[in-house]
Amino acid sequence: MKHFIETVRARYHYAWVVLKGLVKTDFKLRYQGSFLGVAWSVLQPLMLFCVMYLVFARFLRMTDGTPSYPVVLLLGISSWQFFSEATSVGLRSIVDRGDLLRKIHFPNYIVVVSATMSSLISYGINTVVVLVFALFNKVTFTWRILLLPLDVIQLYVLTLGVTFLLATMYVYFRDILHIWDVLQQALFYSVPIVYPLVMVLNFKSYGHMVAKVMMLNPIAQTIQDIRHNFIAPASTPTVWNQIGNPLIQAIPVLLTLALFVSGVFVFRKYEKKFAEIM
């Protein structure tokens, strides 16, 4: 076992050093020249939350009726912001780092991972802010908060898989950037982020069926699980408490793994031609 650990450490030590350097550089460059600097990683989702809360919760009355809904809304926006930011930045990462990849020899995947890790750091900061809001809102935490790391890991694996696919396609087809911007907007409103899933469940005819189909989307499933385990287990519908069939419950998790494996496979298959095409 000790020999195996030493072998793995020796094999990936250089990659780990490069990854840490790129993550630090990416995080610093993101806010370089900005007066508020890193504070924008907190202020951006907070301002978006204020707009969404005023429009959807106050004006349009889209709420689940619980006192914790503002915190649930903020947590959903922060989670989506991580997915959106990581995929958008990671999509361009190989092309943006093209000069570096041609000059220095290191695994190409590190560039994509570093882009998503920078977004993950911002997400961690935002989660601390959500925790502060939850404490002020007198949210009662349960043992399910112990499951939160598993939910975040699934969200990151899903994000990384999608980013590998997008980064590979962007090297060959630059139009994918504009296509992804449009798809993100459609995806944003197709999952219960700014509106509670309870509203869909309350539709008279096919509400329950539509809600179940929505929760099979791995993005919706992970964000609902994060909300459920962190803030509101009593009022947040999830695939686990709305669908009784274990095989159907496993679909979002299987889709997450399939997207990740597909992303890694496609990236590894075409990465040898990146330098030539760029």
Rank of each mutant, 00 (worst) to 15 (best):
R92C: 11
D96G: 09
W143Y: 08
R102W: 05
V162H: 01
T163P: 02
V191G: 01
D151A: 13
W180D: 04
L155M: 13
S118F: 00
L187R: 00
F82E: 07
H105W: 14
Q184E: 07
I125T: 06
Y170E: 08
V139I: 15
F133H: 03
L155F: 02
K103S: 15
L160H: 01
D96L: 13
L101S: 13
Y109P: 02
P149G: 08
A186K: 00
Y123T: 01
V128Y: 04
A115V: 01
S114T: 02
V182Q: 07
I179D: 06
R144C: 03
I121P: 02
A186W: 03
W80G: 01
L150Y: 10
L183C: 11
Q184G: 12
I179N: 06
V162K: 03
V113M: 13
A186N: 00
V157I: 14
Y172N: 08
D181K: 12
V152C: 09
V200L: 10
A134G: 08
E85P: 00
M169F: 12
V72M: 14
S93R: 06
A115R: 02
S119Y: 00
V200Q: 07
I179K: 05
Q154M: 13
Q81C: 08
V111G: 06
M199F: 05
A186D: 00
V128G: 08
V128I: 15
L101D: 12
M199H: 04
T87K: 07
I94R: 09
V113S: 05
F106C: 12
W80H: 05
G124C: 08
I193A: 01
S114A: 14
M169T: 11
P107F: 11
L165I: 13
L166A: 12
G124R: 05
G98Q: 14
L120S: 04
A134K: 03
Y123W: 11
L160Y: 01
V113Y: 05
F136D: 06
P192Y: 02
L155P: 03
Q154W: 09
S93M: 09
